[in-house]
Write a protein that binds this DNA or RNA. Structure first.
Lengths: 104, 104
DNA sequence: TTGGAAAATTAGAGTATGTTAATATGCTGT
DNA sequence: ACAGCATATTAACATACTCTAATTTTCCAA
């Protein structure tokens, strides 16, 4: 093996963690939720309107993001507000925007 | 709707493209290949040894990454060499390393 | 041109994901 | 306690993924 592996190497646990997070983010609706949220928070209803699908569907997607600690939630009266919980995830989303969004 | 959506807004096509790319990268073996490659290139055999699974399995994962234009390939004699084709993808992988890898 | 290494393809089975529709839970105001 | 809105959960079905094992293709060397 004459070449150099792992110039950007990573431990296998890091790989696993990253892959799980990416997988959770790699659904169009979930990614839209994350990009739409940005630094703000929004209620489930707000998100339903923004994304444009059923309440049940959104709730399930939010559950996935919450379970993976990508979103944090806060209950206020009748409503539940979601926000991006981890600043590192926020950073990653910004990077993805730089890579994939043409808006300069 | 009293809050601000889309501080990091993105067009739906951008979201779709990004989600597809993320999905392709969000498998542990594929992510390991990408992180292992970095700026270098490697033959299929090298990758098989590095990742540690069957040739068939690696070839299928490489095919997925190639189809999504995440990897480019080059044939030399008997072997096929793969590398990260898109500098933007390279940038994204670096960002992910910053976010997920503890190595400082 | 034949043998063998390197890589790709195919088929099949098992598992996971995503959607819809229906139902349940929880909270608020009265 | 009750009515009604907001959110979560469940079940069922369809689709997509992933792995293994077997086979095929491609290329080089003798």
């Amino acid at each position: 093996m004459h070449f150099e592996f792992s110039p950007i190497a990573a431990r296998d646990d890091d790989i696993e963690r990253a892959a799980k997070a990416l997988k959770a983010m790699s659904h169009p609706l979930r990614l839209k939720i994350l990009c739409g949220l940005g630094e703000n928070e929004a209620s489930v209803q707000d998100i339903v309107e923004y994304v444009g699908t059923s309440q049940s569907n959104i709730s399930q997607h939010l559950g996935i993001l919450r379970d993976k600690d990508i979103l944090a939630s806060r209950k206020e009266a009748n409503r539940v507000y979601y926000r991006i919980g981890d600043p590192r995830i926020m950073h990653l989303i910004s990077s993805m925007q730089e890579v994939f969004c043409s808006s300069d």
